[in-house]
Simulated assay, not measured.
Amino acid sequence: MSSNQVLINAESKTIVAKSEEAKVVLYAVKSDGMYRNFEMKINKGMRFFPFWLNVTNPTYAPEILYKDINRDGIKDLIIVLTRGYGTGARDSEVHVFHKIRTNIGEVDKENLVDNPTAIILKNVKTSLSKHQAIVRIGNRKTIINIDSLHIPQEHLFSDIALGNIKHYDVINDHLVASVSAQISPTTFIGMLEITYEFKDKMYQAKKIEFKRVK
């Protein structure tokens, strides 16, 4: 057994998600409101992920997606975990596996996904005044008049807060991260959507868009 493998007592394991199409079953140990010590049954074998975490609230159960997101004609396994949540907050992480052929047969290799927070810090500029919120992505600028929202000045943030809600999905066969944009504890003005592409052996940002709340 390698140093990063953790054996899970068979009696304490719980099935937390499964996909018939992907032939994947996720097991975990329930402890202190979290699922821990994940174990994944895949390709008739078992993989162990002792550092994965997911809340036990069924609303935020682990998600198993099975789509061809690297455009090689073979479907990829995408696992979305929610590590925490609260009023106006959600913290998710994603794990992407590609099927590859090796001298020992077909295996599922995990690939790095660039952190959406780091992507936003490098590519998005924001500013907030008592009258307007501004989001700049490259040469594109979105200006939102916030006077009509009637937010008390003492509740307004000093700048747009990005990332209190972070979630992943697959849209049109692309991995997409959605990150919230918030100007007060209760006021969201939109979402930043990062569309990923598989490039240089990892998932990197292909496009960043700001979508306003309607």
Rank of each mutant, 00 (worst) to 15 (best):
I134E: 05
T126W: 03
S178W: 00
S129P: 08
V124M: 05
T187H: 06
A118K: 15
N139Y: 03
S127M: 11
D114P: 02
N172I: 07
E197I: 13
F157H: 13
V135H: 01
I194Q: 03
A177T: 10
P116L: 05
Q132I: 11
S184V: 10
P185D: 13
I119S: 06
I151C: 06
L121S: 15
D169L: 11
A118Q: 14
D159C: 07
I194C: 03
S148I: 12
I134K: 07
Y196I: 08
L162R: 01
A161I: 13
V176L: 10
Q182H: 00
I189L: 09
N145T: 11
I143Y: 06
T195H: 00
G190Q: 02
D169E: 15
D159P: 08
P116I: 08
T126F: 04
E197F: 00
A177V: 12
L149C: 10
V113S: 04
I119V: 15
V135M: 02
L112P: 00
H131M: 08
N123W: 01
N145S: 14
V170T: 10
V124F: 02
R136G: 02
V170F: 06
V176S: 06
T142R: 11
E110M: 12
H150Y: 12
S180E: 07
K122M: 13
S178N: 09
S129T: 15
V179M: 14
F157K: 13
D173Q: 14
A181K: 03
H131L: 09
K125C: 06
A133M: 07
L149I: 13
I143Q: 13
G190Y: 02
K125H: 12
I189F: 07
D200K: 13
N111D: 12
I143W: 00
I189C: 08
I146V: 14
V124P: 04
L162G: 04
T126C: 06
I160R: 01
L128R: 05
V135T: 04
T117D: 14
S158A: 14
Q153V: 15
I144A: 03
F198I: 10
H155P: 00
N139K: 15
S127G: 10
V170G: 08
L112Q: 11
R136M: 13
K199W: 07
E193A: 09
G138S: 12
I143V: 15
D159Q: 12
H174L: 00
S184I: 09
A177F: 01
I137S: 03
S180I: 08
H167L: 11
A161W: 05
I171H: 09
Y168I: 12
N123M: 10
D159M: 09
N115I: 08
N123G: 09
K199M: 10
K130A: 11
I144C: 03
G190D: 01
V170S: 07
A161R: 09
E154I: 12
G138E: 12
N111V: 15
I189E: 03
N164K: 11
T195V: 13
I143G: 01
I165S: 05
I189Q: 03
F188Y: 15
R140P: 00
V179I: 15
G190A: 07
G138H: 10
L162E: 04
K125M: 12
T187W: 00
S180C: 09
A181H: 04
R136P: 01
R140I: 14
V113Q: 04
S178I: 05
H131T: 15
I137Q: 02
R140M: 08
K125P: 04
I143S: 14
L192W: 01
I134H: 02
